[in-house]
């Protein structure tokens, strides 16, 4: 054991150079990608671990779903059969949504309104929906998220 040591010493000193080399390359890669990654993390909230929905004080909320293509779905009317984002909902246009929301708010001003935006949907589309809802008289909306462990499974 003791005889081995003197032989090892010179070798270990040489090895530091590739090590630093790799480190620097990695540093450059991280520096280049970091700004891009930061923005993604900030905005892509839909799979977020936040407070679960309080046990609904009021039942029968209005749920506006925005799917990945930016199409709107409402939990009203004849349910659409089959799978997909609109399962159990009906498709509406933005003008239609404004109309329906106004009618509902006229009769039930305290209705809870939820927006279920797809993680891939543009922020602008969500804002557009929210502004339409606001004009209809909605005071505040709930942005629906899914708990992370479901989020990966649910994808969408």
């Amino acid at each position: 054991m003791r005889r081995d040591r003197p032989r090892r010493r010179p070798v270990s000193e040489i090895n530091v150079v590739p090590y630093i080399d790799v480190m620097l390359v990695l540093l450059v890669i991280f520096m280049a990608t970091a700004p891009l990654l930061m923005q993604g993390v900030e905005v892509a909230l839909p799979a977020a671990d936040n407070a679960p929905l309080k046990k609904a004080e009021e039942s029968d909320p209005l749920v506006v779903t925005i799917d990945a293509e930016g199409q709107l779905w409402l939990n009203l009317g004849m349910p659409t059969a089959g799978e997909g984002p609109g399962r159990g909902a009906t498709r509406v246009s933005l003008g239609n949504l404004a109309d329906q929301a106004t009618k509902i708010l006229n009769t039930r001003p305290t209705i809870p309104v939820f927006v279920r935006g797809d993680a891939a949907v543009a922020y602008g589309a969500v804002i557009e929906v929210m502004s339409v809802l606001q004009k209809a008289g909605v005071r505040g909306v709930g942005l629906v998220t899914e708990p992370p462990e479901l989020g990966s499974a649910g994808g969408r």
């Binding site: 993604g40 349910p79 804002i127 929210m130 502004s131 998220t145």
Partner: peptide
């Protein structure tokens, strides 16, 4: 994590709350 989204023109500020939907709302 999902790719970054472009910020778009903003409307009037509106109160929004992040909620995790416990029970699937549409079909009761």
């Amino acid at each position: 994590s999902p790719p970054a989204l472009r910020q778009s023109s903003t409307a009037e500020p509106m109160m929004a709350e992040l909620l995790t939907l416990v029970a699937p709302a549409p079909k009761a």
